[in-house]
Structure formats: structure tokens, C-alpha cells
């Protein structure tokens, strides 16, 4: 049974008088434990599709099913609950909370989940150890490099034991060496924890790492390659 199903999804944005068809009749099925990349040129609809899979945005037509949950049947509160417990996010610009330290940023999701304080701290530290930031628990984002911040973001995405992690151009702001280091961490987590990773990217290195490459063009799937 797929972990993600996208069935006939359309999305149209209105910009003034102009209608922009961001996604057109998308059908996509992703198996659990996948390490998949959605690639394509700017404006092809990668981020929009990722937002749909993450429940951050809803399609005009069609349905998205994640971990058996039909988004078309869920309200905003239920979607928030699903995101909290089953979906992790990694953003291009890290999006850490600037007033919290690395360990507190990782803890925060667990706070929302209602995990006990001691357990939160232990799991957050263990996760930071796993991404190689054991020396940086108490540093704030401004005291970390871009690569370190993105590793904190990955730790935050993984620590809540999600079914899928959605990473929107995670390496776009990193140099190639740092980007590759990050990809190795995510690949290891995919293997070790069987967490599904879905990237939106136009980074060749990410496409190379991915086990599946979905190519979008003008809001439609142009190619879907399993490696």
C-alpha cells in the first residue's frame, strides 16, 4: 500500500486576471521507504506538489492520501494533527526558530506532540548526535553555519517519527560538499528508519541520490524514473 497517493490533482492560482495552472491532473503513488525526488525547472509545480502532499495547501480537484488519510475529507485541524504526527518538513531556508537553541528547536515538535520534558530532551539530543551536532546543542541558529542549521532542521523533521519527510530544495542554499553531507545523513536515516523522503529539487546531486525521479514540466508529470 503506497504511503502517498496523489489522484488527479489540479491546482490553479489566480494572479490578477491571469490563471496559473500550477498542477494539471497529477497522478502519483509513492511506496513506503522511498527516497524520491520531484524535479523540474522553476515554475514547473514542484513546491506546489510538495505542499499538496504535506497538506499545507489543498487541491482544487482530486485528492491526496497520505498514510491512509484522505485530505479531501479532513478539516484544517485534522490536517495540522496529521502534519504534527506523520509528516516532517525540511525547508530551503532552514526555518528554525531563532530564539531557540538547536536542541530546543528539535524539542519543539515533541512539545506540540505532548511528549514529557525529560524524554523530549533525551530524544532531541540523540537526534542531534545522529546528525553530527553533539557539540552544538545549545547554540542558537545564528551561531550555526547553513549546513549545521539544515542538519538541525532534518533532526527536527525526523525526531517526531514521521511516516514521510518532505524536503523542499534542502540543498539549494548549501555548497556542494555540505549538501552532499546532508544528503548522506538523510539517506542513512531513510535506510535505518525506513522513513520516506520526498524532495523537490533541481540539484543534480539530489537527483543522483534519489531512488526515484519524478520530472515535472508545466504542472504535469513529464517523466517518472525508478532507479
Amino acid at each position: 500500500m503506497p504511503i502517498v497517493e496523489v489522484n488527479g490533482v489540479d491546482k490553479v492560482y489566480q494572479q490578477g486576471d491571469i490563471e496559473i495552472h500550477a498542477l494539471k491532473d497529477i497522478h502519483l503513488s509513492i511506496a513506503p521507504g522511498s527516497f524520491a525526488a520531484i524535479a523540474g525547472p522553476s515554475g514547473s509545480g514542484k513546491t506546489t506538489l510538495l505542499n499538496m502532499i504535506g497538506g499545507l495547501d489543498l487541491p482544487d480537484h482530486g485528492d491526496v492520501i497520505v498514510d491512509g488519510c484522505h485530505f479531501s475529507e479532513m478539516n484544517q485541524s485534522q490536517l495540522a494533527e496529521l502534519r504534527l504526527n506523520r509528516i516532517g518538513f525540511v525547508f530551503q531556508s532552514y526555518n528554525l526558530i531563532p530564539v531557540l537553541s538547536a536542541v530546543e528547536n528539535v524539542e519543539y515538535v515533541m512539545l506540540l506532540q505532548g511528549v514529557e520534558k525529560v524524554e523530549r530532551r533525551e530524544r532531541a539530543m540523540a537526534m542531534l548526535d545522529e546528525v553530527g551536532l553533539s557539540e552544538k546543542y545549545h547554540n542558537r541558529p545564528s551561531e550555526l553555519s547553513g549546513g549545521q542549521q539544515q542538519r538541525v532542521a532534518v533532526a527536527r523533521a525526523i525526531v517526531s517519527n514521521p511516516a514521510i519527510v518532505l524536503a523542499d530544495e534542502p540543498t539549494a542554499n548549501l555548497d556542494s560538499k555540505t549538501g552532499e553531507g546532508l544528503l548522506k545523513i538523510m539517506a542513512a536515516m531513510n535506510e535505518k528508519r525506513n522513513v520516506t523522503f520526498i524532495f523537490s529539487t533541481h540539484d543534480k546531486m539530489v537527483m543522483d541520490y534519489a531512488h526515484r525521479l519524478v520530472l515535472l514540466r508545466d504542472g504535469m508529470i513529464a517523466d517518472d524514473e525508478f532507479k
Partner: peptide
């Protein structure tokens, strides 16, 4: 605003 958006993306409910 970006931060509030992030918190919502992470699953924080509007009431929180």
C-alpha cells in the same frame, strides 16, 4: 509571519 507559517506547517494548531 514566516515563523508562524513554519509553526503551522509543523502542525501547531491556530489556537496554540
Amino acid at each position: 509571519m514566516r515563523e508562524f507559517g513554519l509553526l503551522k506547517a509543523l502542525g501547531m494548531k491556530p489556537s496554540l
